[in-house]
Amino acid sequence: MSGLLVLLCRVIVGGVFIYASLDKLANPQAFAEVIHHYRIVPMALLHPAALLLPMVEFVVGAALVLGLWRRGSSLILAVLLLAFMVGIGSALMRNLDISCGCFNTDGGHAVGLSLLWRDLGLLLLCLPPLLMRTGGPGLARTPHK
């Protein structure tokens, strides 16, 4: 039963991150503009961040769905979600009228409180794969401990 719960969490969180990475990977310039709108990342790190972040989302999301290194992948995605929440929270506090750029780089969902709740929900879904002994079915060769 717990294995099924972990599998469900892995597929949901990993699937969301894989989906979120696709448009960003295809349009790095547009994603760099989205990041720039948050006014958090310094100019020197803007393009490296726009290139690396979608790849991390894709690779780590895929690893989580496949059950490879599930603890490490859920830890990274949890940290990413926390970082996104800080970014969204800071944009809200500064009354920035920007799109979140979560799933697509062309407009998309405006930054708002609902995004914080959504990210919090995803963050909670990261906990079972990170903390539970069983990992559910996957490609990992070691026992699901």
Partner: peptide, 11 residues
């Protein structure tokens, strides 16, 4: 320890 090692590898 395991989580950090795996996370490092994935990064």
């Amino acid at each position: 320890s395991v989580s950090l090692k795996e996370a490092g590898l994935l990064l």
